[in-house]
């Protein structure tokens, strides 16, 4: 599988040779259950990749190993040209220290299906926490940015509300703002609209579209929203049993899937 022909947005042309994410021979199994099988995946800076596939095929696990929530059994992952789980000592790759992992991880952010907002903090505090505590920014500065981000997701008037006072769609928009606050180069979105009532999905997709249009953030999204994928994604990746079985431009894959598993999967999803 080669790198995609499309180099999205072109905003970071200088870095085009260095993929934002580079996964090589990544394996992950839970007991006998092989979830990632020699996975090989490159994502360009600024590219928007949508990952689709049947439930249990390992889509979430791809994102989780990039976020370091799950350690791969073997293989390498690079973020912005730097190894995530390894450190180069001379010519050799050695397992990385926690400190190294933390440095590289600073370039990655993730939005979860179930939001995982901090229930004891207000929307504003949720967003400002990491900039203040992990990045050492001043409280005023971080709060200012948090308010701007709340503006961006249309929730400024909810700055002082706790997650318990927000609807699902509002929570997810706060969670996206929280993730944006540290300005990660790579953002991972794991079925961020799946837990929402249908009428709230639109607002969240709107926010994702805005981030995509700005074009500076590399986005990896797992979603079943095919209309959104067609519109926003540079590349669609079909995943099955721990492997990529088909990938390419969304329009082409959605119109004319080659692989028989892709055909049956799309038929099932689009039937909804």
């Amino acid at each position: 599988m080669s790198a995609p022909e499309t180099n999205a947005a072109g905003t970071t042309g200088a870095d085009a040779a260095v993929p934002a994410v580079r996964m090589r021979e990544v394996n992950k199994a839970f007991g006998d259950n092989v979830v990632l099988d020699q996975l090989h995946l490159d994502v360009d800076p600024g590219e928007r990749v949508v990952i689709i596939g049947p439930s249990g095929s390992g889509k979430t696990t791809i994102l989780r190993v990039i976020m370091t929530l799950e350690r791969p059994d073997s293989g390498t992952i690079e973020v912005g040209g730097r190894h995530l789980y390894h450190e180069r000592k001379g010519d050799e790759l050695k397992p990385a220290s926690e400190k190294h992992i933390r440095q590289v991880r600073a370039n990655v952010g993730m939005v979860f299906q179930h939001f995982n907002l901090f229930p004891h903090l207000s929307a504003l505090e949720n967003i400002a926490l990491a900039p203040i505590k992990a990045q050492g920014r001043s409280k005023d500065d971080a709060n200012q940015t948090a308010l701007e981000l709340l503006d961006k997701v249309g929730l400024r008037e909810h700055a002082n509300h706790t997650p318990g006072q927000l609807s699902g769609g509002q929570k997810q928009r706060v969670a996206i703002a929280r993730s944006l606050a540290t300005e990660p180069e790579v953002m991972l979105f794991d079925e961020v609209t799946s837990a929402l009532d249908p009428e709230l999905v639109g607002d969240v997709l709107e926010v994702l579209r805005d981030i995509a249009e700005e074009g500076k953030t590399t986005m990896m999204l797992v979603t079943h929203e095919m209309g959104f994928a067609r519109e926003v994604a540079d590349r669609l990746v079909m995943f099955d049993s721990g492997r990529i079985i088909e990938e390419g431009r969304p329009r082409e894959i959605l119109a004319d899937p080659q692989h028989e598993r892709t055909q049956s999967f799309l038929k099932a999803v689009l039937a909804h």
Binding site: T68, F112, H114, N116, F118, A130
Partner: peptide, 27 residues
């Protein structure tokens, strides 16, 4: 404290101390 809360602190790259102090212990 739900697993998702711990995972969010990893995603936000908080240090061990700040995780405990600002997210885990308050809950």
């Amino acid at each position: 404290v739900p697993k998702g809360q711990h995972e969010a602190t990893t995603a936000l790259n908080l240090s061990g101390f700040h995780r405990v102090r600002h997210v885990i212990l308050p809950q």
